[in-house]
Computed example of a mutant assay.
Amino acid sequence: MQYRLAQEEGQGATVRRSIGGREVSYFDPFLLLDAFEVQKPAGFPDHPHRGFETVTYMTEGKFQHEDFCGHRGEIRSGDLQWMTAGRGIVHAEMPSGYGVNKGLQLWVNLSETNKLVEPSYQELLDKDIPKININDNKVQIKVIAGRLFKFSSTGESHGTVSPVRTRTPTIYLDFTMKENAFVEQKIPNEYNVFVYILTGEGYFNKAPGSTNQTLIFNQEGMSKKIKFVGDFIKVETKDSQLRFVLIAGMPLGEPVARQGPFVMNTKEELQKAFEDYFSFKNGFEKAKNWESQISRNSD
């Protein structure tokens, strides 16, 4: 369990990094989770990626996105962008308007067989992300990725499924709970799981958690991990409302070589990623002389 202080990232942006920092540098298959807060003219100007996926989920405000292939768009509060960087993307992410813009960015590692796939996007508006209300409408769940498993006294039934296709098996759920509410979430035992609390207070398998805390489940060697109850995570609230995301994934079990914006399997592959980027080849050809409009117009 950890509480992360804010740090600066990009160009004047503020982030709380719970995965990808000193305490938990890699939680297979997750490379990073940043809770970001950005106001103009700050943002994330032109930068490259290779070898993984970035998942941007807005919780307040709106962000623009533009890449060197001409893909450009905007994600607003509640919207999702699932970007597969694959063999190479150079892009920019900047706030669309004035005021506070908040969200989460998750980095999901790709297996060796998928490291160099062609870049692609999956983008969902808030209205298109499946939602269910359970337990007398005290709990709402948004199914951002994966399948929601619902249970009753008569046994298991498969619930809502996200339209997002994940190359690395991933579950991403957004829970909003009222006071004095309870919910159980089934997670496959072989998955690594963590929770990031956006607001409020609650109890996760009886362990307390509150705003901006990250709770780690099922990770060997973690002295402060929280144990599963069977293959469930049980969450309850008392006098406080609670909003949190639950993120789980199938570990890849592969070596990781990472530096800055590139994540490969070996040091040699990592060195080649930098060479390709600076030489404008093998996926980075369009980076030569490219500059995003949204970075130029960020003031």
Rank of each mutant, 00 (worst) to 15 (best):
E37R: 10
G51M: 07
F63I: 01
G70P: 11
Q39C: 11
E74Y: 03
I75W: 06
E53I: 09
E53V: 07
F30Y: 14
E37M: 14
L33A: 13
F63D: 00
F52P: 06
F52L: 09
F30Q: 05
P45H: 13
D34L: 13
L31D: 12
E66I: 03
G70I: 01
D28S: 07
P41G: 05
L32G: 02
F68Q: 04
C69T: 04
G51E: 05
R72H: 10
P45S: 06
Q39A: 15
S77F: 11
A42K: 10
P45D: 12
P45I: 08
Y57D: 02
G73S: 12
D67W: 12
T54F: 11
G61K: 13
D28T: 00
E53N: 06
V55M: 02
E37G: 06
E37C: 14
I75D: 14
G61M: 08
S77M: 04
Y57N: 12
D46A: 06
H47F: 10
C69H: 12
K62Q: 13
E53R: 01
D28H: 12
P45F: 10
F36G: 03
E53S: 11
G43W: 03
T56L: 14
P29G: 04
G78T: 00
H71N: 15
G61R: 01
C69F: 15
A35M: 08
F68K: 00
D67P: 14
L32W: 09
C69I: 08
H49Y: 11
V38S: 03
A35N: 14
Q64N: 15
K62R: 01
H49C: 14
T54E: 08
T59G: 07
D28W: 13
T59R: 05
G70D: 09
H65M: 04
T54D: 05
M58E: 01
D46H: 07
K40C: 15
F36Q: 01
F44A: 01
L31S: 08
P48E: 00
A35W: 09
K40A: 05
H47P: 09
R72E: 13
F36Y: 15
G73R: 05
T59H: 07
F63P: 12
G73M: 09
P48H: 02
E60F: 09
K62P: 11
E74H: 11
V55S: 02
P45E: 03
A35L: 09
H47W: 13
E53G: 05
R76I: 07
I75P: 15
I75N: 15
P45R: 06
V38A: 02
F30H: 05
